[in-house]
Each structure stands twice: as C-alpha cells, then as structure tokens.
C-alpha cells in the first residue's frame, strides 16, 4: 500500500510543474529543505537535536558560489565538490560536537552555526556580506542552458536525487550502523558493552547529516541563484528541526513530507494574507498535538508493535 502511495506521490510531484509552473521552484526548495531536514532526522534517531544544521546548508551553498567564482562551471562538479567539502567540514565540527549530549549538543550546534553566520555576514570582501554571493547558471555536462531550462533540469535532477538519497539513507538506517544509532538514544552503556565505539557511530551520523544538509543547501543555492548569510541563521536551523519533527522521524519519507507540507502551506497562506505565519503556526500546533509521530505517522498508524 505504501509503495503505491509513494509511486503516486512521485508522479504527482513530477507532473505538478506541468500543470502549475510556479510549483517548480516551490517543490525544488521543498526537496532541498527535505534533504537537510532528513539530515536533522538522522541525528534525531540518536535523540540528538541539532539547532545548527543550517550551517552545513549554507556552507555548501557558499561552496558552490566560491567554486563558481573560481572558474568551475559544471553543475555536477559544483554539486559534488561543495557537498564533499561540507562533509569534511561536518567531520571536523562533528568530531568536537558528538562528545556532548542533549541541550549541550543542541546549543553548541547553534553556537557554531552562528559563528558561521557571523563570518558569512562580516567577511564582506570575501562573501559579499549581507548582500551574499551570486550563483550563476552552470553548464550541465558541458551544455550551456538558458535559466528556465536549467531550473527544469535542477527540479527533475532534485527529484531523482531525493529518491536515490532516500533509498541510501533507508539502507543506512536499516543496517547495523543505523540500528546502533537508534540504540545510542536508548542505551549508550549497553552499546559500549557490545564493543561498539559510540563516538564512531555518532561521527558517521553527523557526517551523513552534514552531507544531506549540504546537498539541500547546494540545490537551494542553484534554485535561488544567490546565497546570503541568512541561509545559516539560527531560525533556518530551527526551521529544519521543525520540518523533521512535523514530517516524523519514523522513516525517510517523513522529512520530505514535512518539507512539502510546510512549503506548500507557506506558499498558499502567503497568497491569502500577510499574516501567513498565523496559518502556518496553527497548522503546526494541530499536527504536533494530534500527530505525535508527525505526518508520516498517518501512513504507519496500523503498524503497532507486535505483542
């Protein structure tokens, strides 16, 4: 049943911009944020809340801008290099942060992300300050495309990436390493007594989450054509946590469901009223109060633990 729902949802996403072209940008951004929120959801499996993952999101987008400024113009190369650099940065930051738990982990992520934000905003000569940096339309496999054509390629490429990455993350979470990650949340002591290096389990998860946020940031940068320091602001990090919780962390689709729901709600609400935050907020309260497992929980409701 869920497989059918998934196929229908993918077909609807792919077809939507044909019916309403304005949806192409909204859905591309939803996928970008969904990827980043999936990164947050991976860490949430271990009970670790990061209120700073916008730093990886922003770092990757800035990475694309710097690489483009450095003369690299191919879409694939820009995407891969920026994500790799973000993953390496995640390894360095993660090696320090995974020593902490609970509120300390959350707040240290926030602190580090705000350092990134300040650097992006203040190093005017390098980053353009609050004006940000332009991300030009790249070539795709050496082919020069018009902006509308590239945006269409970006959208369909993002859908494909969402499916591939979703599958890979599903495999990761279903592997011993993924189960060990969940086990960190419930019993770190037993995990050590199984001979499992908890630090390594968490570091892998942190790098995976940084890479996912990096993919999202790069896609967002390409979609908007510009990157600004606000990409790394703490509210952006909070937004990613919100998307992850809203969608539900019980499975990979949750993050994307949350992202699509929030982006579409935001877009629709903003079209009706300036007080769109009120509508978004009311919807969030409703979901959080009545769907503790998030929107994805609606699809998994029938699966109660076997007694």
């Amino acid at each position: 049943m869920r497989a059918i729902l998934l196929i229908v949802a993918i077909l609807a996403i792919v077809a939507a911009p044909m019916a309403a072209p304005w949806l192409q940008f909204v859905l591309t951004m939803a996928i970008a944020k969904g990827l980043a929120a999936l990164g947050v959801a991976v860490l949430l499996r271990a009970g670790m809340i990061s209120i700073g993952h916008a730093m990886s999101f922003a770092a990757s987008a800035y990475g694309v801008a710097f690489l483009a400024r450095g003369g690299i113009s191919d879409f694939g190369v820009l995407l891969v290099l920026s994500v790799v650099v973000t993953g390496l940065a995640g390894a360095v930051v993660g090696a320090f942060l995974i020593r902490y738990r609970a509120i300390f982990f959350a707040m240290l992520n926030l602190a580090v992300s705000m350092v990134f934000y300040a650097l992006f905003a203040k190093l005017y000569g390098l980053t353009g300050g609050t004006d940000g940096m332009t991300i030009p339309v790249p070539t795709v496999f050496g082919v020069v495309l018009s902006e509308p054509t590239f945006k269409a390629v970006l959208f369909y490429g993002s859908v494909a990436l969402m499916l591939l990455v979703g599958l890979a993350v599903h495999r990761y979470l279903d592997s011993p390493l993924g189960h060990a990650l969940s086990a960190v949340h419930t019993n770190e002591v037993r995990l050590e007594y199984l001979g499992v290096p908890v630090w390594a389990v968490l570091l892998v998860a942190y790098i995976v989450s940084a890479v996912l946020a990096g993919m999202g940031g790069a896609i967002a940068g390409f979609a908007i054509g510009r990157v600004v320091p606000d990409f790394a602001f703490w509210t952006a990090s909070g937004h990613l946590v919100l998307v992850a919780v809203l969608g539900g962390i019980g499975g990979v689709p949750g993050a994307f469901i949350g992202a699509f729901f929030l982006e579409l709600l935001h877009t629709e609400a903003a079209a009706f009223t300036d007080a769109w935050n009120l509508i978004v907020g009311a919807a969030l309260i409703g979901v959080i109060m009545f769907l503790p497992k998030g929107l994805y929980g609606l699809l998994t409701r029938s699966e109660v633990p076997a007694k």
């Binding site: 495999r171 990761y172 279903d174 592997s175 011993p176 390493l177 189960h179 060990a180 499992v196 389990v201």
Partner: peptide
C-alpha cells in the same frame, strides 16, 4: 563487525 553499512541488520 558493525561496519557493514549497506547490508541489512
């Protein structure tokens, strides 16, 4: 050995 990332548990 836990490091069999792509094999299911």
């Amino acid at each position: 050995g836990l490091w069999t990332m792509l094999r299911p548990l």
